[in-house]
Simulated assay, not measured.
Amino acid sequence: MSDTVINIKKEGITYLKLNRPEKFNSFNKEMAFELQKQLDDCIRNEHTRAIVLTGEGKAFCAGQDLAEVTHPELNPGFKSILEDHYNPIITRIRNIEIPVIAAVNGVAAGAGANIALACDVVVASETASFIQAFSKIGLIPDSGGTYFLPRLVGFQRASALALLGDKVSAIEAERMGMIYTYFSADSFENEVDQLAQKLASMPTKALALTKKALNKSFSNSLEEQLAVESEYQIASAQTQDYNEGVTAFMEKRTPKFKGK
């Protein structure tokens, strides 16, 4: 197992920490494959009810490690970097039937920013920032940046951010709808823990179906999406958690969901 991603399990939550702090957690081949492996392990672990993706040290993730792509012997080539490294991470995050929180503790640049934006709930420290850094080195956004960003902040703002590569503070990101919310640096870790605990204690079967429905909404017509909602609502009504939720409501008590 590589130490480029730290795995910490606590009370139904798996914390995945990108762990190249000396490189601001920028991705190389090893870390990209290790994150894919760790996400796959979460799928297989029935006790994981929420995932927190964050960074070790001062940064969340500075994107691609340019030292790798400029090294004649280490450079995998852009086709491999995109199709083997980043794209599988994005598809795993969107398809995994577990809520994924991006806890952006510091700068999130390039692919690092867009991996964060692909997560289900994105929160940031007030000291964090987001940068679509690609244009500064003559590239276009990858890791779903041209897909998620316009849907989050609107076409005009997404276009400007992608072309200009402006730095966006956590406060600005929350205001424009790029992220869910931000927390003070002092309380950030505790707030993230509380958020993860809340998600892990919820009816995760229904959360997974909600996530699948939201994924389909990107390409469906209204009529198609209504059909999806009908299918998934019926499916969620067959779960033990639905019965527990209704029973707890009628009995005026806190429900105890098991993700079944």
Rank of each mutant, 00 (worst) to 15 (best):
E83I: 08
N19K: 01
K29T: 15
K205Q: 10
R253K: 14
Q64L: 14
Y242T: 13
S217Q: 06
I90C: 04
S236Q: 07
L53T: 01
H47L: 12
A185M: 07
L66A: 11
D241N: 07
F218R: 10
G154K: 02
D41Q: 10
L207W: 07
F155V: 11
Y182C: 14
A109Q: 07
I93R: 03
K216V: 02
A237N: 11
K258C: 11
L82K: 12
T204F: 01
A111G: 09
Q36H: 01
M178Y: 04
A213I: 12
E191N: 06
S217Y: 08
N114L: 04
V168P: 00
S2D: 01
C61G: 07
I8F: 09
N7W: 07
Q132S: 15
I51F: 06
P72A: 12
P203H: 04
D193H: 08
V52F: 04
T210I: 12
V153N: 00
T254H: 09
E189G: 09
R151H: 14
L35V: 05
S184K: 14
P72K: 13
S2M: 02
L35D: 00
K205S: 13
K205Y: 14
M202T: 14
A118L: 03
M31L: 00
A128N: 03
L163R: 12
S230Y: 11
A160R: 13
Q238N: 10
E97D: 13
A173L: 01
I137W: 06
N243T: 05
I98R: 02
V52E: 03
L214V: 09
S143V: 15
L82H: 11
F155D: 13
M250V: 14
I171N: 11
A200Q: 05
E73W: 12
K167M: 12
G63N: 01
D120H: 06
N87C: 15
N243G: 12
F33Y: 11
G77W: 05
C119K: 03
K216Y: 04
L152I: 04
I89A: 02
A200C: 03
S135Q: 08
K258G: 10
S201N: 10
T210L: 15
I51W: 05
K167P: 01
A116T: 07
G165R: 10
P255R: 04
Q38R: 14
Y147C: 12
T204V: 13
P99D: 05
R20K: 13
V104E: 02
A133G: 12
H85Q: 10
G12E: 07
A113F: 10
G138R: 01
Q156K: 12
S159K: 14
V69A: 06
L222A: 08
F130G: 05
